[in-house]
């Protein structure tokens, strides 16, 4: 039969109790588990002035969800301020602009991007203004060319009916005298 070392057993029990207490005493992180949605950071952690500058840059690409046409960077609403703070935290943790925009896109969809991605139906937004500009330029060019052509037509030498040449000559004489 094995004998149990009483002091050792007490020590082991004490260690177990301490472990249990420290586990329960650990503050539970409140909030959302956002990192789980976009994986590990793919960039380098930013800090100081660079962090502030990039936070503004990324926030200015995002639409404030509770405003009319304002970016997250420009909006003073609590939601936008909170989103900007999340952007700052993500950048400080080393997440890239693409990862951050992907994170917000997962909850708000593409609506969150102030500038839609140039693909699919969105291509119209990029193509139509250029098409309109080109069409306008084409029209202007055509207008510019048309009067020149008319003037050129006016300056072209005209053939006169020989029977009328006598009368034409008379008119010229009267005009010049």
């Amino acid at each position: 039969m094995t004998t149990i070392n009483r002091p050792l057993l007490l020590f082991a029990l004490l260690l177990t109790a301490l472990g249990a207490i420290s586990a329960t005493a650990q503050p539970q992180a409140l909030g959302v588990e956002g990192q789980a949605l976009i994986g590990e950071p793919k960039g380098r952690p930013l800090s100081g002035e660079e962090l502030e500058r990039v936070t503004n840059e990324v926030s200015s690409l995002m639409r404030c969800p509770v405003c009319q046409g304002l970016s997250v960077a420009d909006s003073p609403t609590p939601s936008a301020v909170a989103m900007k703070e999340e952007v700052r935290q993500f950048l400080a943790a080393g997440y890239t602009e693409t990862q951050i925009l992907t994170y917000f896109e997962q909850s708000y969809g593409e609506f969150i991007r102030l500038e839609p991605k140039a693909k699919g139906f969105n291509l119209l937004v990029w193509i139509l203004p250029i098409a309109g500009l080109l069409a306008g330029l084409a029209l202007v060019m055509r207008r510019v060319k048309q009067p020149a052509a008319t003037e050129a037509q006016d300056d072209a030498p005209t053939t006169v009916d020989p029977d009328l040449e006598v009368y034409l000559e008379q008119v010229r004489r009267e005009v010049s005298s």
Binding site: G34, V66, P78, S79, A82, S107
Partner: peptide, 15 residues
């Protein structure tokens, strides 16, 4: 209490 609005943001809440 969603103090930092992070849960509302994660759920894409507009209002």
């Amino acid at each position: 209490i969603d103090e930092d609005v992070s849960v509302a943001i994660a759920y894409g809440v507009y209002g």
